[in-house]
């Protein structure tokens, strides 16, 4: 009883707002299986109009047309790859959020790894060079003699500060 009342109340509220909402609502397909597949497929596809939205999320008009088209293809019994190919044939690889690996997309797929590896190689080379520079170099005989002379005669040209 309580639930029925809640339902009634909700539908009354929705009914009041419905006039404006109805115009925007896209017609739901009767078949939930088709809708489920539509969502799976179209989430992997890019909307051409608002390019950072998926075909599933976009409210652009073209996206609606394309969803309608995909629904039709699903009902025609087309497989997911066939539907993707259908859209790629018309709009290019750009519609795919996961572009195929082929020579023109190699840079896209492997570029970041190439960058990472070359940065690592550069870093290692730099660190090696730096640590090589830090190892104490052996003193020449002349250096050693000069150092010993200085140690033996502290007052000569470098008087200690606290000798008073």
């Amino acid at each position: 009883m309580k639930r029925a009342l809640a339902c009634l109340l909700t539908s009354a509220i929705l009914g009041a707002a419905g006039a404006s909402l109805a115009a925007d609502a896209t017609p739901m397909a009767e078949d939930p299986a088709v809708e489920a597949r539509l969502v799976v497929i179209s989430e992997e596809l890019r909307c051409l109009v608002c390019q950072n939205e998926s075909l599933a999320a976009s409210r652009a008009e073209l996206a609606e047309d394309l969803r309608r088209e995909v629904r039709k293809l699903i009902r025609d019994g087309k497989s997911d790859p066939e539907i993707r190919d259908y859209l790629v044939a018309r709009y290019g690889d750009f519609v795919l959020y996961r572009p195929p690996v082929k020579p023109t997309t190699w840079l896209l797929w492997f570029g970041p790894f190439v960058l990472l590896v070359s940065a690592l190689v550069g870093l290692i080379a730099y660190l090696r060079r730096r640590s090589a520079g830090l190892t104490p170099s052996a003193l020449t005989a002349a250096d050693k003699a000069a150092a010993e002379a200085l140690l033996a005669d502290p007052g000569a040209d470098n008087p200690p500060k606290h000798n008073a």
């Binding site: 051409l48 109009v49 073209l62 047309d65 394309l66 088209e69 018309r90 709009y91 290019g92």
Partner: peptide
């Protein structure tokens, strides 16, 4: 009228 041919031609704008 319904944009079907537009889809075949990859029209998006």
């Amino acid at each position: 009228m319904d944009g079907r041919v537009g889809i075949d031609y990859g029209v998006y704008g």
